[in-house]
Simulated assay, not measured.
Amino acid sequence: MGRRQLDSRQTWSINVNPDTTGGRVWARTDCSFDGSDGGSCQTGDCDGLRTPPNTLVEFALNQFQNMDFIDISLVDGFNVPMDFSPTSGDCRGIRCAADINGQCPAELRAPGGCNNPCTVFKTDEYCCTSGSCGPTNYSMFFKNDCPHAYSYPKDDATSTFTCPGGTN
């Protein structure tokens, strides 16, 4: 899809090819690039690799029962507020607009963002690497500030939103 620099409160309309089945969008912050487009960022990515912490939007198009699925994920932490909204169709947008960085627990703070506890502690309790896991105090911190967002890997029931297939 490409890259685009957005200043605070700017928007970007993403137009995807009709045969696209899904994608991910995340923000990079405090980037420096050289003349050949190589560089580094404090949060986000370079060369296609997401570097935590980062706020992530995911979409899956024309999936189960011809529905489009959208979500905002804080599973890799948080770096900037995000809003993901359809431009047509009968469904609502989702957003995570809280000041999570300003309220981030000290043990999760990172330059430019707020890490997810899995990134920091690397335990099954926070990473959900076994068959079952549930919310923790840290995931509840994210969920309280951004109720539409995934706060841990198994947070499907309150974090995945659908639109009729073909929604723009």
Rank of each mutant, 00 (worst) to 15 (best):
Q65C: 00
M140R: 12
F78Y: 15
G22Y: 06
P117Q: 04
S130N: 12
L61I: 11
P111N: 08
T43G: 01
N144Y: 02
D34K: 02
S130L: 14
N54W: 05
C146D: 12
L74M: 12
K143E: 07
R95S: 13
T20C: 14
S139N: 02
N116W: 09
G22P: 07
F121A: 13
E107Q: 14
D76A: 13
A27S: 13
A106Q: 09
T136K: 08
I72F: 01
T20L: 12
S88G: 12
M140P: 00
T43E: 02
D47W: 07
D71S: 08
A106M: 01
T87R: 11
C114A: 06
G113Y: 04
W26V: 13
M67K: 13
F84M: 13
K143F: 08
R92H: 08
P105W: 03
P81L: 04
G39A: 06
G102E: 03
Q63Y: 09
I70Q: 04
G77M: 10
N137H: 02
R92W: 01
F121M: 08
E107C: 00
G89Y: 04
P53G: 06
V25W: 04
C146G: 11
A97M: 10
L74P: 14
P117V: 14
P53I: 12
Q63W: 10
N54T: 15
D124H: 07
C96R: 00
R95E: 11
P53A: 08
S40R: 11
N79G: 00
I94D: 05
D30E: 13
G48A: 04
Q63V: 10
L108H: 01
N66H: 09
Q103T: 11
T29K: 09
F59Y: 15
Q42R: 15
A106W: 00
W26L: 09
P81D: 09
P53D: 03
N116K: 03
G38M: 09
N144S: 12
L108V: 10
A97C: 01
C114W: 00
C41E: 02
G35V: 15
F33Y: 14
M140T: 08
C41D: 02
Y138G: 04
P111D: 09
I100V: 15
P86D: 07
G89R: 06
I70S: 03
D71N: 15
D68E: 06
T51D: 06
S85M: 04
C41H: 02
F78E: 00
G113K: 03
F33W: 11
F142S: 03
C133W: 01
V75H: 01
T136W: 02
G38I: 00
E107V: 15
S40P: 00
W26M: 05
P53C: 06
G35C: 07
Q103A: 15
D45E: 12
F33I: 02
N137Q: 11
T29W: 09
F69W: 13
C127V: 10
L61F: 12
A98R: 00
C41P: 04
V25K: 00
D83R: 12
L74I: 08
G93Y: 06
D68M: 08
G35M: 12
